[in-house]
Nucleic acid binder design. Structure first.
Length: 340
DNA sequence: TTCACATCGCGTGGACTGTT
DNA sequence: AACAGTCCACGCGATGTGAA
């Protein structure tokens, strides 16, 4: 960008330069950043905004105060969580000092207006939906856990997987159990298949006889009809098999014609009631299609593995998962993922 | 004696002001 | 428009206090 001397520096120009720089830096620019990295001069800002802070506020950002670089809440919790991970327990005040952690305890107390002994539960509250912390949540005393209601299911995704899960899926397991937000759960299930490398077609709700999504692996000649079911407890197929049979019948011919000679039907939910094979047999008998049930946790594990070792999980290998009829246990998934 | 927590004086450095 | 100066919130870390 170049502002010639005769160009009028308008308010709008300043604002657009501000947002550009903010995007570039990935954070709110300080006045120093701003004057250094754009061609806007201080007096331009002053003529339009009086103070730099006024510009910052008008852009919806936080007015910076004096003094040292602020720690964000996130840094506070990140540092706190890191020490828990290191010493495998919530730190005492003495341990915090021993490991020379920052910010100081007094800063935690001041900032959150809580006692040091209350920080663990505050941290838990912050970390419970974030996959990067799932591995240390069990290290926080269980008495505290009850207050915050961590979904138990979250604990079952170990760090070795959770570290590879992208932030947008941080609430995935929670969504899998919240029936009110079923659409969001469906969307994210489709997103996972997209991340796995499938070409995904979203249907979502209110589109008639459609599953929630169709994942196509055209070059390997197969496709998966996906139905996502957010359930608080367990999911039972029950009488829904009629509906599923319709889904399949609606799509199978088109898919076959487009070169997807094999079609699978997959149901994703938080948990399944095991004994429901009558419905599955009905589906198989009427459509010739294999139905597979997979938990949200297992699905995340597959994704984590795919992100960690993309070459080890090409789409034709992923196909093997869906050969199983019925419920795939977590153990089977683990075994599958460890195999070369 | 140990631990949790509070208190206080200090240095820092960026927003803001005044001067040239 | 550039420079120099002021101001003060923030976090640091030493030290104090009181409970177990």
């Amino acid at each position: 960008m170049n502002i010639a001397k005769d160009t009028t520096v308008t308010k709008e120009l300043i604002k657009s330069e501000y947002s550009k720089l903010k995007e570039h830096l990935g954070r709110q620019p300080s006045s120093k950043d701003f004057y250094k990295q754009t061609n806007i001069k201080e007096h331009h800002v002053i003529t339009h905004f009086l103070f730099y802070s006024n510009l910052v506020e008008e852009m919806g950002d936080i007015r910076k105060s004096f003094g040292q670089e602020d720690y964000g809440d996130e840094e506070y919790w990140e540092n706190y969580g890191n020490l828990i991970r290191k010493i495998r327990k919530t730190p005492t005040a003495a341990e915090w000092r021993f490991y020379k952690c920052k910010p100081l305890i007094s800063s935690y107390i001041k900032r959150f207006e809580k006692k040091w002994s209350e920080i663990p539960s505050l941290f838990l509250n912050y970390a419970k939906d974030k996959p990067e912390w799932l591995d240390i949540i069990p290290l926080i005393p269980s008495a505290l856990k009850e207050n915050v209601q961590v979904p138990i299911i979250n604990n079952s995704l170990e760090f070795k997987y959770s570290q590879f899960i992208p932030p947008i899926l941080s609430d995935f397991l929670t969504l899998s159990t919240s029936e009110e937000k079923s659409t969001e759960f469906e969307r994210k299930v489709n997103l996972i298949f997209q991340m796995l490398g499938f070409e995904v077609h979203n249907y979502g709700q209110g589109t008639g006889r459609n599953p929630d999504g169709i994942a196509k692996a055209t070059q390997f000649g197969y496709a998966i009809l996906i139905d996502a079911k957010a359930r608080k407890e367990t999911y039972q197929i029950g009488t829904e098999d009629r509906k599923f049979i319709e889904y399949i019948k609606t799509h199978i011919n088109t898919l076959n014609r487009a070169g997807h000679s094999i079609v699978y039907f997959l149901i994703v939910s938080s948990n399944f009631k095991s004994a429901s094979d009558i419905s599955l047999k009905n589906i198989l008998r009427e459509t010739g299609i294999n139905t597979t049930l997979i938990t949200a946790v297992s699905l995340l594990k597959i994704l984590a593995r795919k992100i960690e070792q993309p070459n080890n999980l090409p789409l034709d290998r992923i196909k093997d998962i869906f050969i199983t009829q019925g419920m795939i246990t977590d153990k089977q998934i683990e075994k599958f993922l460890l195999a070369k």
